[in-house]
Computed example of a mutant assay.
Amino acid sequence: MNNSWKDSIYQQREVLAEILRAPLAHLSERCEPLWEQRDALDATLTENFSSIPHCSVLYCMGTDGVQICNNVGVTGIVPAYLGSDHSHRPYMKEAVPAWGFLLSDAYIGLNGHRPSLTALQVVSRDGRALGYLAAAFDLRNLPVTSALYEEPGYWRQVKGDPAIRGTVFQQSRVESPMDRNLEQALSILEELLTLRGVYQCQIHFSSSQATIWTVDDPFRYRILDAEAMNDPDICLIYPPRPYPDDAVIPPGDIKRILGTLRALRLSDSTIYLRMALINIFNGMVSVTFSCDGSHYMSHVEFLMKDTSFWF
């Protein structure tokens, strides 16, 4: 089973917690006898800073969230943070587990305004919590250990702007330049998708344009305006390319998908297609209607639904 983005986050956090738990627990034991000695805490954190992997800042605070020593960073002691109140910060609003270690959810840091997280290790004496050893991390400094997730292939629906949905029955489709030559425009896109190296296209029916991405230059998009979408000569610009073997959508299905999009655009004057996206590697088709609702589904599921399903 493919991981979702939430599964990938969970796996990444599990690995980070495993890396950080033991060194923070060891350092907290060194801090406990020095808890009432600010200078000694500063010195201990400085001496042991390198033992906490990927750390940006170390500091100690009481159970009330008030900092009892200076910040310690890569360059050593960073003054001016003694007495800082962290009680309102996101990591202080999470419950620390019974084993005394918390890896917080990510948040936006106050200083650099960048995604960050904080690890808290409870410092105890005779079974009583004195406070926390805190280690702050900039997410850009943390290793990525989980695999990049894949987009799910099941049907998803996303509601759009409520203002548009609320007035959908007061509007009617206005014929666009693409509508007047829709069959030719879709034939051009079929040629580009199946024989000219285009692997993704986003079709804007109402504004008569298409945005395309090619396997020869995958990091840049190109816009075909209404004039280009009405001129088969546009195909001469894109050299012939074999249809990719690892594409999920078979080349024979492209024509059927485009034909279904044409029907969704023209079949109803109130609920009509405004935009569609095809990606042959994802195997997905997305459609956005005049009510501003978007649907994402596999090309197989999309082709199984006729216009009666949508209208």
Rank of each mutant, 00 (worst) to 15 (best):
E175V: 14
L189E: 01
D85Q: 11
A136H: 10
C235P: 01
L264I: 04
D39L: 09
I257L: 02
S206E: 11
L58K: 03
R241G: 00
V122Y: 00
N2K: 12
H204S: 04
I52H: 04
R196S: 10
A263G: 04
N141A: 11
V122M: 02
I257Y: 01
Q171H: 14
P232R: 00
V15E: 13
T288H: 08
D216T: 12
S172D: 03
E29Y: 05
Q184F: 00
L258G: 10
Q171E: 14
E14H: 06
P232S: 03
T118F: 03
D85S: 10
D85L: 09
Y107K: 04
F137Y: 15
D225C: 08
Y154I: 11
A263Q: 14
S28I: 00
L120S: 08
M178A: 04
A40C: 06
L16W: 15
R173T: 05
F309G: 01
H88Y: 08
Y59W: 09
H26A: 15
Q12W: 03
R222V: 07
L27R: 02
W155E: 14
E183P: 00
L182S: 06
P239H: 10
N279G: 06
Q171V: 07
E190S: 13
D161A: 04
G76H: 07
P239D: 12
W5F: 13
C69P: 09
A210P: 01
L34N: 13
P239V: 09
N282P: 00
L133R: 02
F205E: 05
C69L: 06
I280W: 02
H54W: 15
D161P: 08
D179N: 05
Q67S: 11
G166V: 00
D7A: 08
A119G: 04
Y10A: 14
C31H: 01
I237W: 09
E32M: 09
H299R: 02
L277I: 10
L139F: 05
L277E: 15
L148R: 10
S124V: 02
L27S: 02
K6H: 07
I203W: 05
L258R: 04
S187M: 09
Q121H: 01
I77Q: 02
L261H: 08
I77G: 02
G76D: 04
A263V: 15
A135Q: 01
I271Q: 11
I108V: 15
A98H: 12
H88E: 12
P244Q: 09
S308G: 11
M1T: 12
L24S: 11
N181I: 08
A135Y: 00
G100Y: 00
T214W: 04
E14Q: 15
L16C: 02
G109N: 02
T46V: 10
Q200G: 06
V198Q: 07
A247G: 01
A119H: 03
S50K: 15
Q157K: 14
Y154C: 05
D105G: 14
F137V: 13
